[in-house]
């Protein structure tokens, strides 16, 4: 464990709390892509199901349980409690175009051709693209509530912090996880445009608005 990874994970935790706070205080899930949130459930369940047969550490266990539980809870809030506030007509990214290629990639690139390892690879590839429906929605509406942009910034920071973590681990432990690193670089790159607008508007106290 190094500080980059710790702060990355904490940033990930923070993003979930920001999202829950947004839904609770505005009593609405407006501006949040259900498809992205559903993909995160798929990602966490397929990757963290190993808590049933693998013990890494208490930290690892608690975090995994939290991410599975919180992502399912967010889905429940969106689908049941605050259902009327979700507008499927703007959440139109075609998820099937992501899942198919990711499944194919997982079958080709994995560390062992076993069910759990292919599932792990799938979750890595899927996570790298899971934010796309959300970014697509942002692009469509052209604006976002400030709290939603903080959620995305925390999520993007988590991914960005994993990069120095990998560099650190390469020098301190001499290991590289090529699948996680490749997918992680792609995932972080997807946030580039968002971060540009975030830093030039929200951080300066303005509303997040994309140029027409």
């Amino acid at each position: 464990m190094n500080l980059f990874r710790l702060f990355g994970d904490l940033s990930h935790l923070a993003s979930i709390f920001i999202l829950l706070h947004k839904i609770r205080t505005t009593r609405s899930c407006r501006g949040i892509s259900f498809k992205t949130q559903a993909l995160y459930v798929a990602v966490f369940v397929s990757r963290y199901l190993d808590i049933l047969w693998e013990w890494v550490s208490l930290y690892n266990f608690v975090m995994k349980v939290f991410f599975i539980a919180s992502s399912c809870f967010i889905l429940y809030l969106m689908k049941m409690k605050y259902r009327p506030t979700h507008d499927p007509s703007i959440d139109t990214f075609r998820v099937e175009f992501l899942v198919g290629p990711c499944a194919l990639l997982a079958l080709i690139f994995n560390y062992k051709f076993t069910f759990t390892e292919v599932l792990w690879s799938l979750s890595i590839f899927l996570e790298s693209l899971a934010i796309l429906p959300q970014l697509f929605m942002l692009q469509r509406t052209g604006e976002a509530e400030t709290i939603t942009t903080h959620y995305l910034a925390a999520l993007g920071a988590y991914r960005a912090l994993y990069i120095p973590n990998w560099i650190y681990r390469y020098f301190s432990e001499g290991v590289v996880d090529p699948i996680a690193v490749t997918a992680g670089l792609v995932q972080t790159a997807l946030y580039a445009d968002f971060f540009y607008v975030y830093f030039t508007t929200v951080i300066q106290g303005q509303k997040f608005e994309l140029p027409a």
Binding site: R5, D9, H12, R47, D50, V56, S57, N60, M63, K64, F67, Y111, K112, W120, Y162, N165, G174, V175, V176, D177, P178, A180
Partner: peptide
């Protein structure tokens, strides 16, 4: 150099 065993990251 390739880490192929065990997934300790989240």
């Amino acid at each position: 150099v390739w880490k192929v065993e065990g997934h300790d990251e989240l």
